[in-house]
């Protein structure tokens, strides 16, 4: 498979958020603003690329019986590096918002599914490309949720004020229930699109046909 296809697979065809519905904890917890969502997504993507490349290099050395334990330790090592880097260089506000969800990358099922399904069977560069695609797909999902919630709850997008009037802000979108509702609506729209895909294609997306 070409690298382009590997990237597209993670971002579009098998998007971890919209298609596979994995890694929901960070998705729902940190998407109170678009910036938080992107930071979380890129951090996870960085860990995924490093871990996938490392495990791909070691794939012939790791005994099959204890591979899960080895995966866990390698991922935990990269997560610890990321944690220390974030503490040193990331803006304190972002570091605080992501909180324990940075160490929780260790138990992210999306990271493991890529290691198990792809990196333990393929070469270094394809594994890194696969991890990068999935990581970017994850970032895209987090950003979408972050933009929607930040706009509805705070009237801004990426920190730029669009709706200054506080009476137009729906505060609950920034709280826990808003995350559930936003994802619910997104998945409903996806289901609707998939159920009527043939119709959308036939009319080229126009609703009047």
């Amino acid at each position: 498979m070409s690298y382009y296809k590997l990237l597209k697979k993670g971002i579009v065809d098998e998007n971890p958020i919209f298609i596979q519905l994995v890694a929901l904890c960070p998705l729902l917890a940190v998407t109170t603003s678009a910036i938080n969502g992107i930071s979380m997504g890129l951090s996870t993507a960085a860990v995924m690329v490093c871990a996938s490349a490392a495990i791909s290099v070691l794939r012939k050395v790791i005994p099959n019986e204890i591979r899960i334990a080895v995966f866990v330790i390698i991922v935990a090592g990269f997560v610890t590096i990321l944690e220390l880097l974030m503490e040193a260089y990331a803006p304190p506000a972002i570091n605080e918002a992501l909180g324990i969800f940075i160490p929780l990358i260790v138990v992210n099922c999306m990271v493991f599914s890529r290691l198990e399904a792809f990196a333990s069977k393929n070469g270094v560069l394809p594994s890194a490309a696969d991890a990068l695609g999935m990581g970017l797909g994850f970032t895209l999902g987090l950003m979408t949720l972050g933009v929607i919630r930040e706009f509805l709850g705070n009237g801004s997008v990426f920190g730029f004020e669009l709706l200054a009037d506080p009476s137009a802000h729906v505060l609950i979108m920034l709280m826990a229930p808003g995350a559930f509702f936003t994802l619910g609506v997104i998945i409903m729209v996806m289901k609707f699109y998939r159920a009527h895909r043939a119709y959308f294609r036939a009319t080229k997306g126009g609703l009047s046909g």
């Binding site: 519905l21 826990a176 229930p177 808003g178 995350a179 559930f180 509702f181 994802l183 619910g184 609506v185 998945i187 409903m188 289901k191 609707f192 159920a195």
Partner: peptide, 14 residues
């Protein structure tokens, strides 16, 4: 039909 399964679970959780 489009409500069933995951969307409904999310709305209930909300």
């Amino acid at each position: 039909e489009i409500f069933k399964g995951f969307p409904l679970a999310l709305f209930s959780a909300g």
